[in-house]
Design a protein around this nucleic acid. Sequence first.
DNA 1: GGCTTCACG
DNA 2: ACGTACGTGAAGCCT
Length: 883
Amino acid sequence: MDKNKKLVLIDGHSILNRAFYGLPDLTTSKGEHTNAVLGFLNIMFKILEEEKPDYLAVAFDTSHPTFRHEMFAEYKGTRKGMPDELREQVPVMKEVLKAMHVSVIEKPGFEADDVLGTLATKAEKEGNLVSLVSGDRDLLQLASEKIKIRIPKTKRTGTEIEDYLAQDVLDRYQVTPKQFIDLKGLMGDPSDNIPGVPGIGEKTAGKLIGTYQSIENIYEHLNEMAPGKVTNSLKENQDKAFLSKELATICTDCELDFKMEDAKIGNLYNEEVYLWFKKLEFKNLLSKFQTEEVTLTTGIEEGFTTVEDLAEADKIFGMMDEKVAHPVGLHLIVEEDSIIGLSLCNSEENVYYIRCTDFITQDYLREKANKLAKGYLVSVIGLKELLPYLAFSEKDNVFDASIAAYLLNPVTDTYHYDDIARDYLALTLPSREDLLGKAYLSKAAQENPTAFLSYACYSAYVAYRSAERLRDLLYRSEMLHLFETVEMPLIYTLYDMEVRGIRVDKEDLKVYGDHLETGILSLEKQIYEQVGESFNINSPKQLGVILFEKLRLPFAKKTKTGYSTSADILEKLQSEHPVVAMILEYRQLTKLKSTYADGLAGYIREDGRIHGRFHQTITATGRISSTDPNLQNIPIRMELGRQIRRVFIPEEGYVFLDADYSQIELRVLAHMSEDEKLINAYKEAKDIHRITASEVFHTPFEEVTPAQRSSAKAVNFGIVYGISSFGLGQDLNISRKEAQMYIEKYFETYPKIKAYLDKLVADAKEEGYSTTLFGRRRPIPELSSSNFMQRSFGERVAMNSPIQGTAADIIKIAMIRVNQKLKELKMRSRLILQVHDELLVETHKEEVAEVSKIMVEEMQGAAELMVPLEAEVKEGKNWLEAK
DNA sequence: GGCTTCACG
DNA sequence: ACGTACGTGAAGCCT
């Protein structure tokens, strides 16, 4: 090795360990744990960027150093060794490093410490600078003027690194690096199986080394020392002391056949590494490849062709019509509400981007595309987003690959062409952002035509190639029926709802907002007066300081960043100070003002309506979600908040009909658990919370108090959520023990429910996923976690998902049917909203009776359960009245 | 961009 | 000893 070069050495297991415990349990969409690998790489990249070294090597132990420790722990009955989630990441880490051509050193018979010590010392002697990266302070003994020990700490704000040259060790610990060995020899270290001298801890060891410098010197001067416990123990344990020192010493002259040149840093960002990062779903790290990205192609792009000639386009559409056995992949390129091009694919070689020109008009493309779907299977990615430009309908032969991919794995966040290619075609494609950045499409088309063509064609290509495979996977996992009869038709229903939107009275909304504003200003003034100073009430940080430091209110509970000021804490503090109630009210008002009054106003379009979006591929359970704005969380529980519903109004000549299911989740539970008592209760249309209260509290049905009923209601909710005594206790503000009693009584009352919930967990553990009545699946990798919290979470999810998911399946069926029926009967009334167990239909005044009947029939008839499904319809001239 | 809080089912 | 109810989305603060 040349002089004056920089070498970075990494203590593999130690950093992997740090990363594992420092980061949350991240997994890929397939459930493989990746947090340790990601954390390791983040630390490594940070150091490489800082230091720009010439050489890099990572040392791993060949057997895990805490082996004995593990055996001991096993004996005690608690497994404390390397958790499985970490263990499975070790080989992955080594593979990734190998792909980066980073030298990985594993020498049987040598611990990583000794390898690191030897290499560092050797490099130093040859006149180089060394950085030794480890989470383990034992390595501090190696610090010198040229060997820097770097200890990374994973904090909330990112990774911070503590650096130690010899002088830093002295400053911080008042001992030299060499004396660190003696210190440890005296103190011992149970995790490393170093016994040390009994009775000597950190303090005494520090004093002794401060005075005598080394263990050898201590024993030379032992007779000069004042008699006492410490001196006695030293005398009795001389063997142990010297053995401990030996054990604590890191070898710096091991016989290693290692050539430093092997550790020379090459190209870390090569294609193999790119594939690894894609596989591990390290989206942020992929940005490091940005420069190489464009050249990173798979060869398929050679077959992509741009078409700008009308006759040519005609020929291609004709050709798409020929191959009837296979699907046609189709995608639209759209900008500012107009089509700028259309891509098509019906074989690996035939991939075309047909650009809109003076002759190839939007209408032409639209017509050709519509015709295609009348005859042959057209496969697309993200159908709902294409519907504004196409006239596809339920009757056409269309396959949405993103919806299929969602059913097969609902816990991923996106289902773009690159995600589908990665998961189902084992193909790594650059994403839209990889190719085009954040540029406008037409701009990108001019500036980077090659990348643009790739982007334009990938969706059609992936839609074409993945369709049959996805369909087969759906079939094999028994979800094809759900896909074809529920999810595909639902796309059109949701699209209809988005187009229709909901009418909002802009003026009324303004009045409501002004009313809130008045209240907020008044409360603000009162709060500042009460406290004696003005501050930002919206800042939990500032509020916490005011409440718990300035006013010294009790029950301060800490969050990660400061005091918790959440509503449930403040509620308990109301009697302590009058300002607390004001703050609670202030919170309520500002929430209503910013999120609802002001927030909704910004979404009202020219037509006086809000056209929110409904998402079908977001939730893990199968529910729909709503954004821009979220119309599924409009206030209702509190009086002031629910008043905002008055501003949601129907068109002239129309009214609202709002129908909601009565306790659909508990009814689903009754059906799925087959618990006779619960089933009978519903058959007899009894008040279920009251019955539960009567049974749990051993009180005659007629004598149940409102408080008892309310507690029983909380228990019923808890059951659906995957009950835990802690959660129930929290909700009811009672002790965990009491909550546990309620739960036990509940299970005594409904014995089959207990058995059923247990079975849900057991089955999910066995299969790795939970299943709804209609076959919808949700993977639950947490069930196999060794972490108690994680596993418990998985168990609650296993109990909740089939219930919540089945209810979601049912209302999806109902909304498709209601929407279709209204359309079939050519009615003017239209479905405009879904809120999980509720449907809102903007109903023509002449159609009220008929629509009401349709809603009840379709909702109640959406599934045949062992208990009746009940839906209650209400009419109103605004959304509040209809509730 | 993460955290906290809070709106709904 | 640990420390959470299940599923979402939006706003505001703060680093």
